[in-house]
Design a binder for these strands. Structure first.
Length: 281
DNA sequence: ATCGTAGCCTGGTAGC
DNA sequence: TGCTACCAGGCTACGA
């Protein structure tokens, strides 16, 4: 389940292995992985073949590589996307969707089991397709005070706001639950009722938990997420809330609970993160 | 404009 | 055993 730290690990891998290379051949094995490239797979291949890669960027969970003609190739890993660097004759992974032959004899592979992710060529760099995606908390230009003000103008649950990529990008279910646990906030707390200090504290925890995860190479639960060399991170050993149902809270010992939220799950400590009561929260 | 939700996907697992 | 139902969840499209 790649979130921002995992995507940044992949970006660094692309920086090391793909930037400076020319794409000598491109093959789309599954058209669904280029679903968001309007003109279709053959256009995708035509636009990329022969292009030189000049840089690798990331905003939130989106990755893009700059190309030598001013265009870019945008990538989202979705839930199960992987970017792998290997020899072209290495055994193909089970869900290989797109391959890029590089001019150093290596191959960049995009594999994706669930096909929530995908790639598309953008005419611009950075891609206008992600103009609506907010900066992420690890971006030097991220403005904490502006984020706090915008969030407090919303009228919604605090976790819903954290997951809104137009407000702050890169936060998914895992890091939202971890940051809320650190902040002792229930996911349904109304954004309008939160104090400035509470939201400032929250965004600080979001940044901290992401930075810590990045230091450990990202989080992995089911080996779906790996870096470009196929290795998993270790951050899942440091989680306090996400996936901890039935385990004692590391802070107070109460049993962590899992609750349905937005058609998925939220994990919280029932003592540290009590359910908001009507009105007063 | 803002908020909330259905649908996209596959495969591992639980339950019968 | 083989079948069905469920779960994981980021993002877009769309309705209210």
């Amino acid at each position: 389940m790649p979130e921002l730290p995992e995507v940044e690990v992949v970006r660094r891998g692309l920086d090391d292995h793909v930037v400076g290379r020319t794409l000598t051949a491109v093959e789309v094995l599954d058209a669904r992985s280029v679903r968001r490239h309007g003109p279709g797979p053959s256009d995708f291949v035509a636009r990329l073949t022969g292009r030189h890669v000049t840089a690798a960027h990331r905003r939130g969970k989106y990755l893009w590589m700059s190309l030598d003609d001013g265009s870019s190739v945008l990538t989202h890993l979705g839930m199960s996307g992987q970017a792998l660097i290997c020899d072209p004759d290495a055994p193909p992974p089970r869900h290989l969707r797109i391959t890029f032959d590089l001019d150093d004899g290596r191959q960049l592979r995009f594999a994706d089991q669930r096909i929530f992710g995908g790639m598309a060529v953008s005419e611009t760099d950075p891609p206008t397709e992600i103009a609506h995606i907010a900066l992420d908390p690890l971006d030097p230009d991220f403005d904490d005070a502006a984020f706090v003000a915008r969030l407090r103008r919303r009228q919604t649950g605090v976790k819903r706001a954290l997951l809104d990529q137009g407000l702050v990008s890169g936060v998914g279910n895992i890091y939202a639950d971890e940051a809320l646990w650190r902040s002792r906030l229930h996911y349904a707390r109304n954004t309008k009722g939160l104090r400035i200090a509470e939201v400032t504290d929250l965004i600080g925890h979001v940044r901290d938990v992401m930075a810590e995860a990045l230091e450990q190479g990202g989080t992995s639960f089911d080996a779906l997420y790996v870096n470009v060399n196929g290795q998993s991170g270790y951050f899942d050993r440091s989680l306090h809330a996400y996936g901890q149902e039935g385990r004692p809270c590391d802070r107070c010992g109460s049993i962590i609970v899992r609750e349905p939220f937005m058609n998925r799950s939220s994990y919280r400590c029932p003592t540290c993160q009590p359910r908001p009561r009507n009105g007063r929260w």
